[in-house]
Design a protein around this nucleic acid. Sequence first.
DNA 1: AGCGGGACCTGTGGGC
DNA 2: TGCCCACAGGTCCCGC
Length: 281
Amino acid sequence: MPELPEVETVARSLTPYLTSATITSALLLRASSLHPLSLPIESLIGTQIQAIRRRGKLLIMDLASAPVLSPASPSMLIAHLRMTGRFLTAPANMELGRHTRCVFGLQGKDGSVSQLFFDDIRSFGQLLSANDAILEKWSFWRDLGPEPLLMENSALYGRLRGKRPIKTTLLDQKVIAGIGNIYADESLFLAGINPERPADSLSEPESEKLLAAVKKILKSAIENRGSSIRDYRDADGNAGAFQNKFHVYQRGGKSCKNCGRILTKIKISGRSTVYCGSCQK
DNA sequence: AGCGGGACCTGTGGGC
DNA sequence: TGCCCACAGGTCCCGC
């Protein structure tokens, strides 16, 4: 599910609920929902959530540890939602859902108690209780590319190496962080670039145009609280609205909103890809 | 180097 | 109604 705009929306919607809350309990319901590099889930008990933020598609909760905890205690709780991961805030007495993979007890600064559920239908998502030593070992984290909204074209253009399709390159989290299948297709459409073009065939102005399109699409998607295809909801249970603005994603066989020609649907590195053969060169 | 295919999981929608 | 297949916001790993 969630790409950068959805994770950003989740982080923002969680912020009022979680900031300054202390984790009072942590129960893991499916072992595979905890990252192999993670500290035990119990390591989170007693930590206080300082802030919630996003890096690429990762949701990050910054933690402060109680003074008695060892230096090995976690400084962050990181979640990768993958396809169907989701955070839900719940009253203290709420029962677990069918797809709840982890549940945290929370105590707010005002003493109020509540729960935080990590639900995940497909169970691809993972939680990682991390400290600095663990992050150094985590290659996905180490190699994560720049934030698209902060990126300059010199950085993108410099990374457009090799003959693989530009769409594959946009999906490579080492090149640029946070773009997934929806926003890759939508950005390439807006930039007028064919997704099958070899990455190294883009000129510097084309790279610039692509990065501008990526930024415009991501910002617009964030303003619309993300895209809800099926499962995605923010922490308040709200769907996004950007799916109503798609130009190409999931529109194979329909007509181009720009020129009226039938949109082409193909596979690029295993992912469904839709583009306009007339508008995208 | 990079692609295809499979794996990890569960659910839904379409075709017959 | 039911069965089977294809497909789904992601990433990793293997073999060619």
